[in-house]
Design a protein around this nucleic acid. Structure first.
Lengths: 239, 239
DNA sequence: CTAAACTGTGTCCCTCGGATACAGAGTACT
DNA sequence: AGTACTCTGTATCCGAGGGACACAGTTTAG
């Protein structure tokens, strides 16, 4: 799996190109969107490892090689799937200030990542972003326009928030997991090695095993607090 | 590649087990550490895709199948490589307060991730942490002991900082990249589509192309500011 | 109506992870 | 010391999966 070689030229065409006009030969039976959808369904169920060209083709009632008429290879298919799975960014909640917008934005992105666990693995390394992905970034920058942050800082905020949403979708317990499963997972390893991990042991002891995992909220609140401090410093300091 | 199936029982033994005593047959020619080192060298050069059992075996002058006497499979080998590549956490800078410790900690972890780009891909999804990985977390919790944060919050901070270090190692430009390469990469996509990404366009225009990418520092400063606000609130509010 | 272009298919090849059976090496027990 | 047992490395084999290539059928431009 994961051959990794990506045809950047072709991928750019696929992500950003316009649907070309009337062509000559027989009309295609498939669509890029349909292929991506089929791939997403499979990957949602069985992960990226379960995603084979064969299975995608079968689910579309086509031969494996037919897919290569639309997509250069598996890597590019995954990129298309990612773009479709992330989708367009949601409308910002009406009347929200920049903080409210970014808070909602991060939770929405978190949800997308959680709905498609394979998106984690599909977003490692340098990528060519698609229109949807860029539209998400645009929303962050737009929300921060007028706060006194520089353009570079606005982008840095986007990177920070994407990272948090993505990172926590990874750490988030799977849907059916019992509360406090993270703590017990760590606890098993720390137990019997308390002298090696004393602080960790103490921290784990102080955790209510019934408490729900609030890592997303906690981190997001800290990040937004930090940004807010900068924003107020900027608006009071000069201007 | 990336068959994904992990033998958790065996992996736990490999990561946490103690080297067993004197055995009977011929003495092994290899070591787990040596195998992991060989794998790291290969993955550092050619990524996880370049890491094949064959290549690892060749670099150790052994047959491919000999490796399976030490390691259950490829997935477990990668886990061992990760544990070795991350290594033990560095000693906290002497005399530093919690903020100084966490700042240094995050940069150190960032460095490790940057030195081994494949570690990105190796840390997706739920994993069984090794002793080194847990020791890193221990350091964060230890640094926060006495700040008034609850045990759960201390762990949340660790998740947050790991995520930032990991995330930024991914976004960080490769070693030889020219300054401002991120901006130009975005710029190419935005150019000609200014009406679709107006805020992004404005942000990019305001960026000095010579400026060095400071996303790590920016995000880290925000996060630590946010934590500091919580710490002071806790210490002044009650106690 | 013909030629060109495009689509889906069948077949083939290569790479890679892993199972299995076997031969030699070293140790524990008598 | 000898023997039986066990562990190591190897050789061989298999199946899954990505992708190349040539071909036949289909649709449209001229």
């Amino acid at each position: 799996m994961e051959t990794g070689g990506v045809d950047k030229r072709r991928l750019f065409e696929l992500l950003w190109g316009t649907p070309s006009g009337p062509r000559r030969g027989p009309r295609p039976t498939l669509t890029l969107a349909a292929i991506a959808r089929a791939g997403i369904t499979i990957a949602d169920a069985d992960g990226l490892d379960g995603l084979t060209m064969q299975r995608v083709a079968e689910s579309l009632d086509v031969t494996k090689m037919a897919l290569y008429r639309y997509v250069p290879g598996r890597a590019e298919l995954v990129a298309l799937m990612l773009e479709a799975a992330i989708g367009e960014p949601p409308a910002p909640p009406p009347g929200a200030d920049w903080r409210g917008q970014l808070d909602d934005w991060t939770r929405q992105l978190f949800d997308r990542f959680r709905r498609h666990p394979w998106a984690q693995a599909a977003t490692v390394g340098a990528r060519l972003p698609g229109p949807n992905e860029l539209a998400w970034v645009e929303r962050v920058v737009a929300a921060l326009t007028g706060t006194g942050l520089t353009g570079a800082e606005q982008l840095d905020v986007a990177v920070l928030l994407v990272g948090h949403a993505r990172n926590l979708a990874q750490h988030a317990a799977p849907d059916g997991a019992p509360a406090g499963s993270r703590e017990t997972a760590f606890g098993v390893l720390v137990r019997g090695r308390e002298e090696r991990f004393p602080a960790l042991d103490a921290a784990l002891r102080g955790i209510d095993p019934e408490a729900t995992d609030a890592a997303l909220d906690f981190g997001l609140a800290r990040i937004l607090d930090g940004i807010e401090a900068l924003v107020t410093a900027r608006s009071t300091g000069r201007s």
